[in-house]
Design a protein around this nucleic acid. Structure first.
Lengths: 222, 222
DNA sequence: TGCCTCGTCGTACCCCGGTACTACACGGCC
DNA sequence: GGCCGTGTAGTACCGGGGTACGACGAGGCA
């Protein structure tokens, strides 16, 4: 279940978002904010997976709110949704740490797809902006592997300490037998842990768990 | 009416694309090419709005075909659609002048939306790649104009091209069955490849192969 | 006192992954 | 022509991985 916080100063806009999201059985709206300050406070309280963030809001705007939320190290992903697709807004928002940028006149399906993509760690950008993004930066590719100081990944949120340990050694390539030996456990115990890890993280086998371990930087490439 | 040219060496893939596109009343398929050379010739003849371009094709591949088509000054937009979402492919393709990059396991609606966006002059990028694009842009990383051919890791030295491809998708968490389906191979063939990869790289199972793939940067953390 | 989470261990079952072969078509090369 | 690397495909076998259960002690907390 993806938890979403709506931050927008216009009541009808919030209403529309809420209706759309609540109609999906894998999403739930955990709160509504009418300005940036309120948004940061509600993120702090509810720890949503995703924030639908408007840019133009009285008081603290969406960009600055994004910056502050990211600065707290929260696992929350921020999806900026605005009426304007002006470059500077978008660039500022993305630079502030947002995971995506969509325009309000997008189709509902696009919005939902965007939320799901962002929640799963991907990023989305409105096509109208992607063009400019590519034009401006295509010549600076590919990216260097410099790692961003990423906050705790939501996919690991529900894991216990012990499960994190197990996931780490899975990420180092240990078999269940090896884990059992080196951690002085019964193999059945290891299997129980592994099963719970796969279930909690939504991965189907240890291979994908290894990939998750890398993606979340629980383990790092040699 | 958006005119589309399909360039893919696999007949069933072309068929699927054609069926999907012809079901839309604002699109029409004006031709099918089975390799890059044919694609450039057909673009020259039909001047389609959009080319659905596969990367892997016998003879002239999709990247080089894109480069040549763009070089002719045609106003045809190129949308790369491939099984692989590998960085280097994507970057090369975009650098070659493509307007977008989607993966074949995308939803049909995504593909259609992508074609319409590209036809109207916008650009689209698969969410899984957008993440990396943003990371590259946001951190203002130094440009490496010519596709950084990093020093080949000795552990991969003896692998053939095909084996590298297989290792790459193993590193993305695909099961043997999935590899077989998506690469149009028999599962026994996949197993043969996997076995050779493990043997050549000195890894004992696919989990360690995944780790090797990350360590050698054949795949990168999301 | 009761309830919950966490960590531990067990059994039974099934399927995928990996191994060990063999086999054949194709293209390049000597 | 003959050889070899590469990519493809097959059969047979078995062990580890993953699932679905149930169970129990320790500790936190209301």
């Amino acid at each position: 279940m993806t938890t979403v916080l709506i931050a927008d100063d216009q009541p009808m806009q919030r209403f529309g978002f809420r209706m759309l999201l609540e109609s999906q059985d894998d999403m739930t709206v955990v709160g509504e904010a009418t300005n940036g300050t309120e948004a940061t406070r509600l993120v702090d309280r509810h720890r949503p997976d995703v924030v639908l963030m408007d840019i133009r809001m009285p008081g603290l705007d969406g960009i600055e709110a994004t910056r502050r939320i990211i600065a707290t190290g929260a696992r929350t992903r921020i999806l900026i949704v605005t009426t304007f697709d002006l470059d500077e807004y978008a660039y500022d928002g993305l630079r502030a740490g947002a995971s995506g940028f969509l325009v309000k006149d997008a189709q509902p399906e696009e919005l939902l797809a965007g939320i799901r993509a962002v929640a799963s760690g991907d990023a989305v950008v409105a096509p109208s902006l992607t063009r400019r993004l590519l034009d401006a930066y295509i010549h600076h590719l590919p990216a260097s592997p410099t790692a961003a100081p990423r906050p705790e990944d939501p996919r690991l949120a529900t894991l216990t300490e012990r499960e994190r340990e197990i996931l780490t050694v899975i990420g180092q390539g240990w078999t269940n037998t090896e884990i059992a030996e080196r951690l002085h456990l019964a193999e059945s115990t290891v299997k129980t842990h592994v099963g719970r890890i796969l279930s909690k993280t939504g991965t189907r086998d240890r291979v994908q768990a290894v990939i998750l371990a890398y993606d979340t930087q629980l383990v790092m490439p040699a």
